[in-house]
């Protein structure tokens, strides 16, 4: 447990969570990402003892909605949009009575923001400020300001060379990461990565995630592989619009208008111009590691 404020570093962005009066924060998902540096964004936390939802239909302009039920994570509905006074917000409603939270609402005020947390139980004071799914939505929104983005993928660090493997769920991202681990590489993350494009080189960085108990890591990206399981190993370079759109399909984004959709597309194009992209079929064996190493990326 740690008292507020805490600073969490995610893909090089330092987010300061503060509360007045100070809160006790649980240190579940973000523990290995806590730092003592200057912060890029400050989020002031307000605890609200209300059972009601934090917003109604008339006081906001919604531009993106997500609904998540029946997974291993708590059922929830989330949205991003603008408040009636023009401030960007993220809201999450939980439907699970077992959770200590009713809803979360983060309202951005230029660079910083206020995080409203509605607790179900007045005695519950211990809160993970980096709670799912606010974590991913928040990071996605913040990365956009830095021409960067989230992508469903696994990434390994092979002696300073980062290799990214992306595909739809169940295709073998984690399996591929473990094959590399068996050959001496380090897994940066096997599910979701933050790609930074704004620091001179393209980097892949892990983010705090539920159940991972991870610490902050990143690597320069040298190769991107669109993977599928196959009875034979093969690797085939692709480029141009095809490569960009295939990569785009696995990224996390909320293209609320034409400008943001095209901005996101251009960020992906920047990555595909600077990092070679391949289609990769693989059997589950270490041979695929040798095939990729022989590409000398």
């Amino acid at each position: 447990m740690s008292n507020s404020p805490v600073i969490v570093s995610v893909a090089g962005l330092n987010i300061r969570y503060s509360a007045e009066p100070p809160l006790s924060f649980s240190q579940t998902d973000y523990r290995g990402f806590a730092v003592d540096n200057a912060c890029d964004i400050t989020l002031d936390i307000n605890i609200v003892d209300s059972q009601e939802t934090g917003h109604d239909e008339s006081d906001r302009e919604v531009f993106f909605v997500g609904d998540c039920r029946g997974t291993e994570m708590p059922d929830h509905r989330w949205e991003v949009g603008y408040t009636k006074d023009g401030k960007e917000y993220i809201a999450v409603d939980f439907f699970n009575d077992f959770l200590p939270l009713n809803w979360l609402k983060l309202v951005f005020d230029d660079k910083n923001g206020t995080l409203y947390i509605s607790r179900r139980d007045k005695d519950t004071l211990q809160i993970d400020p980096y709670i799912y799914p606010l974590n991913n939505i928040l990071i996605s929104r913040l990365l956009r300001r830095y021409n960067s983005f989230l992508i469903h993928s696994s990434v390994v660090d092979d002696n300073g060379k980062g290799y990214l493997f992306t595909a739809v769920s169940g295709t073998g991202k984690s399996t591929m990461a473990r094959l590399w681990q068996g050959e001496g590489a380090t897994i940066i993350n096997d599910d979701m990565l933050a790609i930074r494009t704004d620091s001179g080189e393209i980097t892949a960085n892990n983010i705090p995630m539920p159940y991972y108990n991870d610490s902050s890591r990143g690597v320069a990206l040298k190769g991107i592989f669109l993977i599928s399981q196959s009875k034979d190993d093969y690797v085939s370079p692709i480029s141009g619009a095809k490569a960009t759109l295939k990569l785009l399909a696995n990224t996390i984004h909320q293209p609320c208008d034409k400008t943001s959709a095209i901005d996101h597309l251009k960020n992906i194009e920047l990555v595909s111009k600077n990092v070679p992209i391949y289609e990769l079929g693989f059997k589950i064996s270490n041979n695929i590691v040798n095939i990729i190493r022989q590409l000398n990326l």
Partner: peptide
Amino acid sequence: FAISEVAGETVIVPVSDSV
């Protein structure tokens, strides 16, 4: 939908309010 140029080709990408 948004129309844009990528690597010399014209592409159409969705502008959506849901995943």
